[in-house]
Amino acid sequence: MVEAAVVGQRDATYGEQVVAFVVPRETQPPRADLVEALLAHCRTRLARFKVPAHLGVIDQMPKNAIGKISKQELREVDF
């Protein structure tokens, strides 16, 4: 991975859910395979409530004026 970020996103059922975003290297496997591999990795190492409900593969992270990842913009992404 080049970059990764995890945010909480509003959910009608649970109030909030864990959502992860990654920017892959160009040499990573195709997106569908990458998503499943990352989620499988999370399932074996994290408590169930910490495993992302969704994992988005994006081309670049949104950044604010000083170059930090804009988690607010990531929270607004629809799946």
Rank of each mutant, 00 (worst) to 15 (best):
C42N: 07
E3G: 06
H54T: 08
D11Q: 07
A40W: 09
L74G: 03
V2Y: 10
R75S: 11
Q17V: 14
F21A: 05
A53H: 12
D33E: 15
I66T: 15
V22G: 00
L38F: 03
A32H: 14
K50E: 12
S70L: 12
R45T: 12
I58F: 00
K63V: 13
N64G: 10
P29N: 08
G8V: 07
F21L: 08
P52N: 06
R75F: 05
P29E: 11
L34G: 00
P30K: 14
E36D: 14
T44H: 14
Q60M: 08
E73A: 15
I69H: 01
T27N: 02
A5F: 03
L55H: 02
V51C: 04
H54E: 14
D11K: 04
V18E: 01
Y14S: 15
Q9P: 03
A37F: 01
A12T: 05
G15F: 03
D78K: 15
R25G: 03
R75L: 02
V2K: 15
A40L: 13
A65L: 14
P29G: 05
R48Q: 11
H41M: 10
H54N: 12
A47Y: 11
A53F: 02
K68D: 05
M1F: 12
V57K: 04
Q28T: 06
R48S: 12
M1S: 14
F21W: 02
Y14I: 06
E16G: 04
G67N: 09
V7M: 05
T27L: 02
Q17A: 13
D11V: 02
Q28H: 12
V6W: 04
R10P: 14
G15N: 01
E16W: 03
V57A: 06
R10V: 13
P29L: 09
E36V: 01
F49C: 06
A65T: 13
L38M: 14
A40T: 13
H54K: 13
V57S: 03
R43K: 15
Q9S: 11
G8P: 04
D59M: 02
A40G: 11
D11S: 09
A37V: 00
H41Y: 15
G15S: 04
G56P: 03
Q72I: 13
D59Q: 08
E36N: 10
V35G: 02
G56A: 14
A40V: 09
L55T: 00
V51A: 04
P62C: 02
T44F: 10
D11P: 03
S70D: 15
E73Y: 06
A47V: 10
A20V: 03
A37S: 15
N64W: 09
D33N: 14
N64C: 07
D11M: 05
V57P: 01
D78C: 13
H54F: 10
M61I: 07
G15P: 00
A32K: 15
Q17S: 09
A53M: 09
V22W: 00
R48K: 14
A65I: 11
V18K: 05
